[in-house]
Structures are given as structure tokens and as C-alpha cells.
Amino acid sequence: MTKKHVSTTINGDAIEFLCDPNDTLLDVLRKELSLTGTKEGCGSGDCGACSITLDERLVCSCLVLGVEAEGKNIGTIEGVSNKDQLHVIQEKFLEHAALQCGICTPGLIVSTQALLKENSNPTEEEARYYLAGNLCRCTGYDKIIRAVLDAADVMRGAA
């Protein structure tokens, strides 16, 4: 099997890589590109730990082939903060203690960013349903949802 050459954009950087057609985009990010902030919890799209954006659309990178990245624009957790300044969502996750072990956190933050782009003022129920694909086993979700809603308020300038 021959590796394929892929040109793509990741967090604004033009990136080229070679990948096996069988590799998922998650494999490529973690193994090929050392972007290990994107986590693998299940490999079957059931946990959301590997959430990224593909042309602005929230997806599980374990359900995307690496070769599909050709010409696409990819966003990962590594691109959320701005240099040394945390994104409001990241700040709110810390402030609300919305993480315990932290393994689901990158996926949740990427998903929250996608949520707030689509809906700047989600209700608690909307946030809970939008994030239903991001499993967290530690927190019971309470503090995560509070962080998300608080971040939304701040980003809208309502708080």
C-alpha cells in the first residue's frame, strides 16, 4: 500500500504529511504530527475526546480518514488559545473546575467553541444536547455546563 501525500491547514498552519489510506485523521494528528492534545477514548465516534473541526464543522477525528484532510481547514485544541492567552472557554473551564482528570477536556473545549459559534446564547438544554457526544466520567457535567454557559455570556458581552 502506498502512502498518500496530503496538503492541509491545521490551526492556520499549512501542513503536508504522508499517510496510509487506512489511517484516521486522529492517527495522523497524534502520531504523525505530534498533536497529542486531541485524545482517543474509543475510536468509534462514541466519546468525543477526539473532537476537532473540519472546515468549521465539528467532527470526531477518529471517524475521518487522514486522506480526507486534503485541502481542508482543521482546527484542534492546540489552536484554541491565542499565543499565551487562554480562550475565554478555557478560562471558564478552569474557573468553574469543569475538569477533573482532564482527558475529555480538549474535546469538550473544541466542541464548546463550535457550539458557541453556531449559537451564541444556548439554553442549558441546548448546551447539554449539543455536547451529548462528549463523554465525561468524572464531573457529572454540572460544572462543564456552567462553564459553557458562563463562557457564552462573556463572549456575548453579557457578563
Binding site: 465516534g45 468525543g48 473532537s51 473540519l54 464543522r57 465539528l58 467532527v59 470526531c60 471517524l63 475521518v64 466542541s111 463550535a114 457550539l115 449539543y130 455536547l131 451529548a132 457526544g133 462528549n134
Partner: peptide
């Protein structure tokens, strides 16, 4: 069908 992420695909 599936989560937001799965809906994306």
C-alpha cells in the same frame, strides 16, 4: 443520528 460530531459527517 448520533452526536453533533457524528451529524457533522
Amino acid at each position: 443520528i448520533g452526536s453533533t460530531q457524528v451529524q457533522g459527517r
